[in-house]
Computed example of a mutant assay.
Amino acid sequence: MIRRLTKEDHEQVFLFLQQDPSFNLFIIGDIESFGYDADFQDVWGQFDGNGSLKAVLLRYYDSYIPYAPGDFDADGFARLIRETARSLPVELSGKEEIARQFEERLPLGAKRTLYFCECRTDECARQEMGAFAVKTAGWADVDRIIDLRRRIPEFDTRPTARDMLVKAMETNSARTYYIEQDGKMVAAASTAAENSLSAMIVGVCTDQEHRGKGYASAIVAKLVCDLLAEGKMPCLFYDNPDAGRIYHRLGFCDIGLWAMYR
């Protein structure tokens, strides 16, 4: 049986998602930030005959994330997505072995597969922080963050990026650390989907003329140290081998693959 979840289900849902807290950080973060009644978010659950959860599906605006530790009703979830999707192709992401089950069931966007990693210790990160002045961004820095990202050729900064960053800051589910030179923000990294258990590090970027100085490594290292000190597991994606080597040097370990269809 698949049904919409409510706040009365929260304890069971949270225990279920804690089986895989890193891979579920987006679902956990969105539920903690926005609950079960927001008009831009829905959460459904599949239950077995004994009333135990078998799978969860999250809709956040026009994007979907499924999760199941084993077999689940992919056909049933696909029907829900077709009934509620407001645009095609469908945007879907998740643990690769779960997400790929929708490839023959839905009109999905182009697939991108990323390495998913987490960092359980700050031992390596503390050695990479260096003597740089890493600052914490505030509300006055929102436009500077977006402007820096737009200057990075590798970044696809969407028109909604500013609104999403503001909303995340309002719910304390995101923070940005940065380094500036002569009053200009030249490197930054942010978190997304921060929750009580974990956080995703995103938006790691350095202005082209300031690369090779260790700025991004220092910022990510500080994020790692601060998150772990708060009891949150730092996680991130990468698909660039050079970036992967840097993250591994900071103490991150690959734990699987993440698929995105957009």
Results as ranks from 00 to 15, higher is better:
177 Y>C: 12
206 T>E: 02
176 T>K: 00
209 E>D: 11
189 A>K: 10
232 K>R: 15
158 R>D: 09
241 P>I: 09
158 R>G: 08
161 A>H: 11
142 V>H: 02
164 M>A: 04
196 S>T: 12
223 L>K: 01
227 L>F: 09
154 E>W: 02
160 T>Y: 14
170 E>V: 08
162 R>C: 12
146 I>K: 09
177 Y>R: 15
202 V>R: 00
192 A>K: 14
184 K>R: 14
201 I>K: 01
249 R>Y: 01
209 E>Y: 04
221 A>S: 13
229 A>V: 00
220 V>K: 03
159 P>Q: 10
149 R>P: 07
184 K>E: 15
156 D>I: 10
236 L>F: 10
226 D>F: 01
247 Y>T: 01
180 E>D: 13
202 V>D: 00
230 E>N: 13
186 V>Y: 05
200 M>Q: 13
146 I>E: 11
204 V>R: 01
249 R>M: 05
232 K>S: 09
248 H>F: 00
190 S>T: 06
224 V>T: 13
164 M>V: 09
161 A>Y: 14
172 N>Q: 11
185 M>A: 07
233 M>I: 14
174 A>L: 14
222 K>F: 05
150 R>L: 10
203 G>I: 03
218 A>C: 10
218 A>H: 08
251 G>Y: 01
196 S>V: 05
212 G>M: 03
216 A>E: 00
148 L>R: 05
